[in-house]
Design a protein around this nucleic acid. Sequence first.
DNA 1: TTGTAAGCGTTATCAA
DNA 2: TTGATAACGCTTACAA
Lengths: 340, 340
Amino acid sequence: MNRKAARATISDVAKTAKTGKTSVSRYLNGEQHVLSTDLRLRIKTAIEALNYRPSQMARSLKRGRTKLIGLIIADITNPYSVDVMCGIEAACRARGFTLLICNTNNKVDQEQYYLNLLSSYQVEGIVVNAVGMHEEVLNHLQQTLLPMVLIDRKIPDFNCDVVGLNNSEAAQLATGHLLDQGYRSLLFVTEPLGLVNTRNERLNAFNTVMKRHPAYHAEQAEVTLNDPATLDKILTDFYQRHRTERCALLVVNGALTLQVARSMKRLGLIWGEQMGLLGFDELEWAELAGVGITTLKQPTWQIGYSALEQVIRRIDGDNTPAKEQVYSGELIVRGSTRKE
Amino acid sequence: MNRKAARATISDVAKTAKTGKTSVSRYLNGEQHVLSTDLRLRIKTAIEALNYRPSQMARSLKRGRTKLIGLIIADITNPYSVDVMCGIEAACRARGFTLLICNTNNKVDQEQYYLNLLSSYQVEGIVVNAVGMHEEVLNHLQQTLLPMVLIDRKIPDFNCDVVGLNNSEAAQLATGHLLDQGYRSLLFVTEPLGLVNTRNERLNAFNTVMKRHPAYHAEQAEVTLNDPATLDKILTDFYQRHRTERCALLVVNGALTLQVARSMKRLGLIWGEQMGLLGFDELEWAELAGVGITTLKQPTWQIGYSALEQVIRRIDGDNTPAKEQVYSGELIVRGSTRKE
DNA sequence: TTGTAAGCGTTATCAA
DNA sequence: TTGATAACGCTTACAA
């Protein structure tokens, strides 16, 4: 049976229900009240009999609204990005939008490819998860004319909605915790600062707190994600100079925390013993790594959800000035920053 | 400037280039050789001037081919799923298809929602990443009439292409390794076997190897992912009974390995010391957890890539009987299974 | 309450 | 080598 199963169209339904397609269309679009009970029933049965499902393609074409939203992600491998995505997705379902997920692997050409793709499918808006994105790739997005909201990070000199963490507050919380635990020499480890506002804001808040305690020692170091040798050097050096005091590391994000942990393992530095360790972003394995690693957890799901709501607001015509929404982080204390 | 920026259409291009839309369409669809050099140039300039991009919606409607493929994932939070997805995505880009990613969170209703969605967008095929999927959710997919390929796992009594790991080979490799390392009492820890072929195949291969060594002890235990209490009990019990020999755990997948590691941590059982530990699926934190955890790594990316190629083959009309493609896993030895 | 017809942006058919 | 024109499946005036 069911040889080729050509999809039923609205005309088929109309024919089967012995009516015109207008009525079927009305039935589908919530104007059922204008239909007579009899007709309504005939249409209902016809639809079920034919297993009819309206074509979004045709619908979008006609209406000029696709109900499609594009999501650009630099690195879907990052668990943070995945969590954010889940929030976005939930919001989409709630609002009747469909998400086109584009993983660019941090490559400009792949980003360009997907931007074209999204444009050709006429998405109504774009959410950009900028986590881990190279500056070059990020800047490239300015060309977009569509409603767009950024997650986590801003594009310098580009006025655009942003949703993310309250970086200052979170960094204060983290730094304060380290001091509370008796650490006296702190090293802020970050990926290259560049113009990345999140990194800079976190660092600034760190420095602000430390300036209130002139007796304690604060330092910072920049390192790229895939440069283990340099990282090893930085950590060894810091530890050599400060092993006599209680010293600790504050790491700017989860991806880097992974690298730092690997480096410490290589060097035989045990977190929670020789050095304290606290990283931004929660890690599913945080409790399994030695005595556990203290993290600053972001409300990722919530951030994603809000971001989507914001694009929709823009799509719906909201013209108020670009705004920034920030959420508070939560400190999850584990063995790596326990009092001795 | 740029007030409303209504998208340019093919007619706009035709008008600007002083020609008909047929020619523009020809230009776009690789029939440039039939066009005169002059006309070709005019069209080219017009397209660039208007920043024209053909509407996929209209194209799909007309052609009846959407070049869309749906991906159904039960749990995008699982790193395995993400890696597979990357392979699929790369294949899509290579073959000019666009991926509609649907995360069902293992809920039948969400799956139904997405199945309808995919159908209404007229995807040409579906890839199902069955990793971590509940049987109920999985079975539900049989209704699909579209070309479909499964990743990792089969649907019982449903004839469908599958791409995944060579489970027997991998389980033999893993079991053999444990024996080589001098472990003499092995516990195979799995999620409920049910009719899940992957779990059963892995277990069977494990048993086959163990039967060749009647002097050694083999055991198995089923536990659900979120039942820490039971897991604790299973592990304690096993350890109590076998602490005098060298004993080890073989865990059926990565998600469960995470739980097992947590449980051992709670119980104060140190992997690589009191007990050996080997888990299917590579974990990014494997080397950071204590002495490191030995894993059996799957060629995830490759699996995803192949799966997509297989759907495309089906879409292109391949009618050969459903086939199963398996790939070999790779053992990554770490501290948790080192010789004492 | 119902139906006819035009049109959304493409491509395919056919004629010039 | 070109270009009208008719679909594709749907929504929406407008008419009845």
